[in-house]
Simulated assay, not measured.
Amino acid sequence: MSQNEENDKDESDSCVNLKDSIPLINDLFHVHCKVGEGAFSSVFLATLKSSDRRKKFALKHLIPTCNPERIERELQCLQKIGGNDYIVGLELCLRYRGSVAFVMPYMKHDRFSEYVKNMTTEETKDYMRALLTALRRVHKFNIIHRDVKPNNFLYDRTNRRYLLVDFGLAQQYTVENLETITEINSQSIEIPKTALSMKRKRFDENNLNFQFNPIAKKNMENKCYCFGKPRVCTLCLVKPQQTAPRAGTPGFRAPEVLLKHPSQTSAIDIWACGVMMLCILSGTQPFFRSPDDCTALMEITAIFGTCNVQQCAYKLGKKVIFSESLPCTDLMSLCLKLQKRNRRITHDRENSICKKAPSNIEYPNEAYHLLTRLLDLDYKTRITAEQALSHPFLSS
């Protein structure tokens, strides 16, 4: 059996599985094919049996093992904010035993890789305006999308239509909750200034003899000597474990997510917007290819420099140690360099098949200024969606 035949068989099996899981779907819809798949769901193209098949729907079938709280959270997000400002709406929710499917309007869209390298300035403006308009609405409801990326921002290039989808990782937050979380975690990781200024004593903090020495224990009270060292002291071992959300797609996670900061805000969505704009202005996709958080942090450091990343970590109550020092790179120079490289590669490839090479695209300085504001390492000073929409690049 060929690869295409295997794919067709898998797709057919998926459609049958969907109908078997929720019998009502077979009564209401013609399910045509699978159009998308993620870690927690599969999306199918369908039309109503009672219609002339003109109106199309996207059926999002969540895997049966999905957490019920996660399903409820996504459903509430779609009901509360969907259907306006380029945000996908919800037509119907179907449930049968342990299976759930969301019925949403279907929008034909292009792949990001098909247009990212040749978007004009005006097209880029429209694209970023729509994305930030959608996020402005999301953030007004104190909701973090948490998975902003090209695959979740659909773009119909022919008709200039946009749609923000997939609220499966969305998170509700309030300022009060963030202040409480910050206070609790700051108590658990607080390091006295006196401890940092003292010279490290030559002993093993985890040595059993030392632990049961009352004099030594008295001297060690409330003092930590392991911060930034390749060991964990007895005092830190008994502290409550610090937890922080890590949900999101590799390559689009903000520095505060990679550094496991507990009180995360809607600014993580803005960082992801910045990564998408970086892909467009540099003509490079994907821009970051990080398989894990440590590599992702190093990729960011390669652009922003070790000093800036260390300063960012310090503001979050963290410490990052690098084996070598890297300078900061100017984003505009980097994008222009990558554009030139990509044009040369495309030119060589297309000339080999007798096609015309793409023309040069020059973005104004305002575009790069907005990019630097979207990719601000400090989430507290990072531009908001509302502010970005008033930026000279998008308001002109």
Rank of each mutant, 00 (worst) to 15 (best):
G83F: 05
G83T: 02
G83P: 09
G83M: 03
G83R: 09
G83H: 06
G83S: 12
N84R: 14
N84H: 10
N84L: 00
N84G: 00
D85P: 02
D85L: 08
D85K: 15
D85I: 02
D85R: 11
Y86E: 07
Y86T: 00
Y86V: 01
I87Q: 10
V88E: 01
V88C: 13
V88P: 03
V88D: 00
V88T: 15
V88R: 07
G89H: 04
G89T: 05
G89I: 11
G89W: 03
G89Q: 10
G89S: 12
G89E: 07
G89K: 00
L90P: 09
L90Q: 07
L90G: 06
L90T: 03
L90I: 15
L90M: 10
L90S: 06
E91I: 09
E91L: 00
E91C: 13
E91W: 04
L92K: 06
L92N: 13
L92A: 01
L92P: 00
L92C: 14
C93M: 12
C93F: 01
C93N: 03
C93P: 01
C93G: 05
C93R: 05
C93A: 15
L94A: 10
L94T: 01
L94H: 05
L94I: 10
L94V: 08
L94M: 12
L94W: 09
L94G: 07
R95E: 12
R95C: 10
R95L: 00
R95Y: 04
R95A: 08
R95F: 00
Y96S: 10
Y96T: 01
Y96K: 05
Y96R: 11
R97A: 12
R97E: 15
R97S: 13
R97K: 15
R97H: 13
R97G: 02
G98P: 00
G98S: 12
G98H: 08
S99F: 10
S99C: 12
S99Y: 11
S99W: 08
S99P: 08
S99H: 15
V100N: 11
V100D: 08
V100W: 03
V100R: 06
V100I: 12
A101L: 12
A101I: 14
A101G: 08
A101W: 07
A101E: 04
A101F: 08
A101Y: 08
F102G: 03
F102Q: 00
F102P: 09
F102D: 04
F102V: 09
F102I: 09
F102Y: 07
V103E: 09
V103D: 05
V103Q: 11
V103I: 15
V103K: 02
M104A: 02
M104D: 13
M104I: 05
M104R: 09
P105R: 05
P105A: 06
P105Y: 09
P105N: 04
Y106K: 02
Y106I: 03
Y106C: 01
Y106H: 14
M107G: 01
M107W: 03
M107K: 05
M107S: 06
K108E: 14
K108L: 11
K108H: 06
K108G: 11
K108R: 13
K108C: 03
H109W: 06
H109E: 05
H109G: 02
H109M: 01
H109N: 15
H109T: 11
H109D: 13
H109Q: 09
D110M: 01
D110F: 10
D110G: 08
D110K: 09
D110V: 01
R111M: 13
R111K: 14
R111V: 06
R111P: 00
F112K: 01
F112Y: 13
F112A: 11
F112I: 04
F112Q: 02
F112R: 01
